[in-house]
């Protein structure tokens, strides 16, 4: 079933950002890698929802999408010199 292969591929694409998270070199590279994994997780959830015909999964994807920026925002806003 092709519909079940697609979430698997998307999961692989999500996990493919882990080496960059491991290697860095800078802290910002790691946060960008985590951000990218977040988008991949949204895509995986959407594909899982389409493959298993369960629209509640779109809500989980929506929650991830709505809060995708908070970690990155915290990193930028709290790093460096305090104001």
């Amino acid at each position: 079933m092709i519909l079940e292969v697609l979430p698997f591929l998307s999961l692989l694409a999500t996990l493919a950002s882990l080496p960059r998270l491991l290697l860095g070199p800078g802290a910002a590279d790691r946060i960008v890698a985590a951000q990218l994994a977040g988008t991949g997780a949204v895509a995986t959830l959407i594909l899982l929802g389409a493959a298993t015909a369960t629209p509640p999964l779109y809500d989980v994807a929506l929650v991830f999408a709505a809060l995708a920026a908070v970690t990155g925002l915290a990193f930028v806003a709290l790093s460096g010199r305090a104001r």
Binding site: S17, L21, G24, A34, G38
Partner: peptide
């Protein structure tokens, strides 16, 4: 930062 980023990805 790497540790926290990995933890966030683990949460996903």
């Amino acid at each position: 930062t790497a540790s926290i980023a990995a933890f966030v990805v683990a949460g996903l």
